[in-house]
């Protein structure tokens, strides 16, 4: 079994605060892993380190067997990992189509200048995530929260990465939209995509993951099947402590 992602002894310190504390986990190719924990547990910080938006204090991150800690974000994305953000970050004055176009662009100036945009691929991606054809020319600033989240997912998919880190993709969506995105994720899993996802909507997440890990204050609490992890005593304590 090839590993898509190998995180070993990851540590991130901000001054005196330890945001990630000696965290290790693996993700097999085609596997889907849920990352759960209360607010402020350090889930997003883990994402940022995998993407290279934050540099870890120590520890290693391997992508498809290759150490990526020294690579820039763009280089990591080219190697096949991409993420969504908890708060969507669209290009407000670009259309839905152009937002997706930015995700599809190769990281080469020459190709960006002389290559034509793949308009059918743009439309296909937008439609796979649930945009109607008439939405393609809407400006991102006109979209509602649910649509922005879908747009973010579409742009992340457009990068061509096969390992997707999803940060709260269900927040602010209607149950119909959740169903649609869940269906898309299942479809992508069939097609061999690998997922690492964070969500507060545990019932929506459960059918989408093979396995889960729980963290609190950057430290691993439990690692196993979704039911086992949720049943873990320390996990329950940290969640109860949160409310």
């Amino acid at each position: 079994m090839t590993l898509a992602l190998e995180v070993r002894n990851l540590v991130k310190k901000f001054g005196g605060l330890t945001a990630t504390n000696d965290l290790s986990f693996d993700l097999a190719k085609g596997e889907s892993l849920g990352l759960i924990g209360p607010n402020g547990a350090g889930k997003t910080t883990v994402f940022s380190q995998i993407m290279g938006e934050l540099r870890q204090t120590s520890g290693t991150i391997k992508l498809y067997g290759e150490e990526i800690s020294k690579l820039t974000t763009a280089e990591r994305i080219a190697k096949g990992v991409s993420r969504t953000y908890q708060v969507p970050r669209p290009f407000a004055e670009l259309s839905v189509r152009e937002n997706i176009r930015v995700g599809l662009m190769p990281d080469s100036l020459r190709a960006m200048i002389f290559g034509a945009p793949d308009r059918s691929r743009e439309a296909e991606l937008a439609q796979s995530i649930g945009f109607a054809p008439k939405d393609l020319d809407k400006t991102a600033s006109e979209l509602a929260m649910g649509d922005l989240r879908k747009l973010e997912f579409a742009r992340t998919l457009a990068t061509g990465a096969k390992l997707l880190l999803l940060d709260e993709v269900f927040a602010g969506l209607t149950s119909g939209e959740i169903g649609m995105i869940a269906e898309l994720i299942q479809d992508l899993r069939q097609r061999g995509f690998t997922f690492l996802m964070v969500s507060h909507d545990l019932p929506a997440m459960e059918p989408l993951v093979d396995r889960a890990i729980a963290i609190e204050r950057g430290t691993m609490l439990a690692n196993g099947s979704f039911a086992d992890v949720l049943g873990d005593k320390s996990v329950r304590a940290s969640y109860l402590g949160e409310s």
Partner: peptide, 22 residues
């Protein structure tokens, strides 16, 4: 060209451009 779109996108949200692999 697409380059022009990308430059414009930087002005709106540089992190997202980086997050799109550019």
């Amino acid at each position: 060209t697409r380059l022009g779109t990308a430059l414009w996108a930087i002005g709106m949200n540089e992190e997202s451009v980086r997050g799109s692999g550019l």
